[in-house]
């Protein structure tokens, strides 16, 4: 479904964020992208839908090259790529329904969207998605009245409103507590299976990733250093990805139960999903 060839991104500051990335994601596969902060995970998924312009290399979506498309063609491409954000990225002053319907913007004209005159089928679909994520009674609530987990559910519904072929997920659980994190991950993975979507999930929490995904790609300093099954993540491989650390020591430490998968701290991240 998605094919990246030699993707490279060098920022104007001179930092090389991505170096010659080759990646192939077939439909229906859920792929977790792990790596330390600054490894280029965020840049990689933002290059795919061209929120960040890659310096060189090519992006192929559904066998169509979208590396250099502009204007209407770019919007056509983006419409096929749903995106879910770390901080939910809801428009907080719009209602839940408006937030979900904004996933259809690329399908309707400006004036229709301005006057909120969406087709009946769109509204039905939005309602079904809200039902699927368990928020149909909240449709008139404003975005800022929701809890973190609810906001992320609205974010998921918005991404799926696009009827995407590819889903990009940027740290979906970084701002959530461990229980909600698992619920959100399960929801995302189930929906991907149901709709046969190719999915890339950026995630810090390795344990959580191992539980839900089919394939793990480890990124370090803009290069792929691991690509394989979740079970293959041995301590040696984690060391190559994240650097030196005792990966087994704290596994039985009771204090760590309180740590939530919050920041870039690898240790906490590893144990975040630990019951």
């Amino acid at each position: 479904m998605l094919k990246l060839k030699g993707l490279t991104k060098r920022y104007a500051t001179g930092d090389l964020a991505l170096n010659d990335i080759d990646l192939d994601v077939p439909a229906g596969q859920v792929l977790a992208l792990i790596g330390p902060s600054g490894a280029g995970k965020s840049t990689l998924i933002r290059c795919v839908n061209r929120l960040v312009e890659p310096t060189s290399g090519s992006i192929e979506l559904d066998s169509k090259d979208i590396t250099n498309v502009r204007g209407g063609r770019l919007r056509q491409a983006r419409r096929q790529i749903g995106m879910i954000f770390q901080n939910y990225a809801l428009v907080e002053r719009l209602s839940v329904m408006e937030n979900v319907l904004s996933g259809r913007l690329a399908y309707v004209g400006f004036w229709r969207s301005y006057f909120r005159k969406f087709p009946q089928s769109d509204i039905q679909q939005a309602f079904e998605l809200l039902e699927r994520v368990g928020l149909e009674t909240m449709l008139d609530k404003r975005g800022d009245a929701l809890s973190g987990g609810q906001k992320q559910r609205v974010g998921i519904a918005r991404a799926l409103m696009q009827n995407p072929k590819l889903l990009l997920v940027d740290e979906p659980t970084a701002s959530l507590d461990p229980k909600t994190s698992r619920q959100i991950m399960r929801l995302i993975c189930e929906l991907c299976q149901e709709q046969n979507l190719a999915t890339i999930i950026n995630i810090h929490d390795v344990a959580l990733a191992q539980q839900f995904v089919h394939r793990v790609v480890g990124l370090r300093a803009g290069e792929i250093v691991y690509d394989g099954a979740p079970d293959g993540l041995s301590p040696e491989i984690l060391t190559t990805i994240y650097g030196e650390e005792d990966w087994s020591a704290d596994k039985h430490d009771d204090d760590q139960g309180a740590s939530e998968a919050k920041g870039p701290d690898v240790e906490a991240a590893l144990l975040g999903g630990h019951p």
């Binding site: 209602s95 408006e98 509204i123 309602f127 149909e136 009674t137 449709l139």
Partner: peptide, 17 residues
């Protein structure tokens, strides 16, 4: 128990409040 607006949305008609 559902509000009329929710029932309406289910059948595909919704206007902003």
């Amino acid at each position: 128990l559902l509000e009329p607006r929710i029932i309406a949305a289910k059948s595909g008609s919704w206007r902003p409040k």
